[in-house]
Design a binder for these strands. Structure first.
Lengths: 235, 235
DNA sequence: TGTACATCAGTGAACGCGCGTTCACTGATGTAC
DNA sequence: TGTACATCAGTGAACGCGCGTTCACTGATGTAC
């Protein structure tokens, strides 16, 4: 009767098979992309008949949704661990990059071309804003540290990062910060977090899609360069 | 016998029907994404039978390839016109944004999630590097103008844009500029062009995918802000 | 100008495929007395 | 401990669908004399 009957052998078997289905699904996605994911193909690969999967998922849509959820959770946990190890925005960036390179199609499942009409369920929005919260934490920490530096050193190049009037868009964010969901980050940190997200996504998505192939430069170096510029920039 | 028999009524009809097929294809892509594109559905919508389309395209793959080519050509022409009107990098950025917002799925056809295994034909690479050349022109022009400013004015904030030793990645590009395809742009301009591309793509792709929906800030303002930062940045 | 022929757009039937999904059923596993 | 029953994983057949693609054919349009 209890909802979490995880102890009984049958329940353990169930979760195990569910896990294997998802495992095969990830393999398929990595090989041929999410649009090619097929229940029958997964079943065949597991040595079962197609309808058997309906014991574990209500249908293809539910499986895909679960995979998206899993991708979000995996990314959130990766960033949470990087954050916990005290690496700051720089560490988050490299954790993000590592996670993306680890399974490009998983990255695209979250940040790739949207399929028109699909709506992500409610709980995924939650994970998504948890990710944003981690970014905002690190962003706030950076700005705070920079401000302290500026007070205790005479290095003008560091000081400029928190000097002068705020950028127009930073000012705009003062009045449009609902998406930060109550996070106490200053507007400058919101601004930096947004730039962090979009700039790194820009590089990663083009890199993973192969648009840098045959261009010959070192993509890791470019990534690091953009990251440096971002961290040094005044918002 | 001549290859371009564009004058004869039959040829005019042919190109007209071909154009309508592509038109319907774009409508379908805009509605349901590229993966949902179906020859039979297009034929039905035009009031013909499915096999009729094989008079105009060798198959689904050729049609999609042609659409991708058309998207690249459209983008290249849009940027070429913006460039010709003398608007510089700023104008290119807004032309790019307008083009992307005009038909998000067309943008994703070029810059979206790649389908593993697909290889673009040779001539598309050509258009792609033509786009890059336009970017490099504008980027070079900006750096040159900035350098002149720095010589004739005493505004230190402008001068810093071309001051000091080059960034490490700019130095790296000195040795890895084959992709510029003989373009005479200085390495700093290559660097800025790359940042232009990836940063704006980062914003646009997330915006078009709906990741900014319900965040409440003005995406156009964010775009302009990132553009300003990019143009002011020293490379 | 009309007649004979070639070109070619479009049709309808058909093939084979794989998809998601349903349903009635079998057989093994777990549970209650 | 064994017996009766309930649970439930998995099967195989079937449905309906739409897809890309081929093929032989019809009929209209253009061309050559």
């Amino acid at each position: 009767m209890a909802k979490a009957d995880a102890g009984t052998p049958r329940e353990r078997y169930r979760t195990q098979v569910r896990a294997e289905i998802k495992e095969r699904a990830w393999e398929q996605i990595a090989t041929a992309g999410a649009s090619a994911l097929s229940l029958n193909a997964i079943a065949k690969q597991m040595g079962m008949s197609g309808p058997a999967l309906y014991r574990y998922f209500a249908g293809r849509d539910e499986l895909i949704t679960e995979l998206i959820r899993e991708a979000y959770r995996s990314l959130a946990e990766t960033l949470r661990m990087a954050s916990a190890s005290g690496a700051g925005l720089d560490g988050l960036a490299h954790a993000l990059r590592g996670w993306a390179l680890d399974d490009p199609q998983r990255y695209f499942l979250i940040y790739g071309t949207p399929v028109p009409g699909y709506r992500a369920p409610e709980d995924i929005t939650g994970i998504s804003s948890e990710i944003m919260a981690i970014l905002l934490d690190a962003s706030t920490a950076l700005d705070t540290a920079t401000a302290l530096d500026a007070c205790t050193t005479v290095d003008a190049r560091t000081a400029v990062a928190s000097d002068g009037p705020p950028a127009p868009f930073t000012a705009h964010l003062e009045d449009h910060r609902d998406w930060a969901d109550g996070h106490p980050a200053p507007a400058a940190a919101l601004h930096r977090a947004l730039a962090f997200w979009t700039r790194l996504h820009g590089i990663l998505s083009l890199e993973l899609a192969g648009h840098f192939a045959n261009m010959g430069f070192d993509t890791a170096l470019f990534f690091a360069s953009e990251l440096d510029a971002l961290l040094a920039q005044r918002t």
